[in-house]
């Protein structure tokens, strides 16, 4: 499944029009003056980039000393790309065992939907996929996953509601090994990052997986809601402390929200975006490509 820039552009359509239209007005041929700096600042703030990251980006832009629309465009593009870093490859998995991916995040960000989309994606690549319903807390979470498992056509391991999530993960990994599964996707209950006990529970899931199969989970993906504001930074910080996510997924990016907070998270915590969710369909998940992302934002 190739990255489709047209689709991403379509998703970001509304964002793009507002963005560059205003930069044009703001960045006059003479270069970056106080007024155009303020206009740029408002654009970045409105995209949820946050005050501190916006200041840093604009400071760098000022140093670039660009004059004229094209030069400013390129300088800003470079500056944003520099923050985002290069796209990362998926880690290699030693053969003979399932790749284990753990999905974490706060409530309502779209974890379960993202999991279904990842399942569809790996299945389309010809892999044998299994889901584990380790969200044993939210009412009907396992049922929701069951609907998706049927729709996508993959196996699901679940237990009764209220069961120990770490035990579900353990069982799922054992059964994934026994059945020769290539990718095991583990759903977890949404939790606010400030709830210490729930974060401990996540750590336990991580520990138990590692015990069952050293080296797993291979990936821990933190799902962020594209409409979340500055709090996403705090979420990323605390999830990082607890379970060391290997990457981010921005869900719901096809709204009007621009998820600029990702820039601040990349800058402060070094976490890369791995995927972006662009729609409600099961095929609407793209591998994150920083250049396409920035170009779609600035074109």
């Amino acid at each position: 499944m190739a990255f489709s820039i047209t689709r991403l552009r379509k998703g970001l359509g509304k964002a793009r029009r507002g963005f560059w239209g205003r930069i044009r007005r703001a960045a006059l041929a003479s270069g970056l003056d106080a007024e155009s700096r303020e206009a740029l600042e408002e654009i970045l703030i409105e995209a949820d980039v946050g005050v501190a990251a916006t200041q840093r980006i604009l400071d760098r832009l000022e140093k670039a000393d660009a004059v004229g629309e094209d030069a400013i465009h390129n300088a800003l593009r470079d500056s944003l790309l520099e923050v985002l870093g290069r796209a990362r490859e998926e880690p290699e998995i030693p053969g003979g065992r399932p790749r284990v991916i753990l999905l974490v995040g706060v409530n309502g960000v779209g974890k379960t939907t993202t999991l279904a989309k990842l399942a569809a994606r790996y299945k389309a690549e010809g892999m044998r996929v299994m889901m584990a319903a380790a969200d044993t807390f939210r009412a009907a979470a396992a049922e929701q996953l069951e609907v998706w498992a049927e729709r996508v056509g993959v196996d699901l391991v679940r237990q009764r509601s209220g069961a120990d999530p770490a035990a579900v993960a353990y069982d799922a990994l054992e059964s994934a090994r026994a059945r020769g599964v290539d990718v095991l996707l583990v759903d977890t209950a949404g939790r606010l990052h400030t709830k210490h006990n729930l974060m401990e529970e996540l750590k336990k899931i991580r520990r138990v997986l590692d015990k069952c199969e050293p080296g797993t989970p291979d990936e821990v993906l933190l799902i962020l809601d594209a409409t979340t504001g500055q709090n996403a930074l705090s979420q990323a910080r605390l999830f990082k402390e607890a379970v060391e996510p290997t990457g981010l997924v921005i869900a719901k990016l096809d709204g009007t929200a621009k998820a600029g907070i990702v820039l601040a998270i990349r800058e402060e915590l070094g976490l890369d975006v791995r995927f972006v969710g662009l729609g409600e369909g099961v095929g609407d998940l793209e591998r994150f490509a920083p250049e396409a992302f920035v170009d779609a934002l600035l074109s």
């Binding site: 979340t228 504001g229 929200a257 621009k258």
Partner: peptide
């Protein structure tokens, strides 16, 4: 409305 919403909350 999600209390963690960013700038887009106004538009919504």
């Amino acid at each position: 409305v999600d209390g963690m919403s960013g700038q887009d909350a106004a538009r919504v």
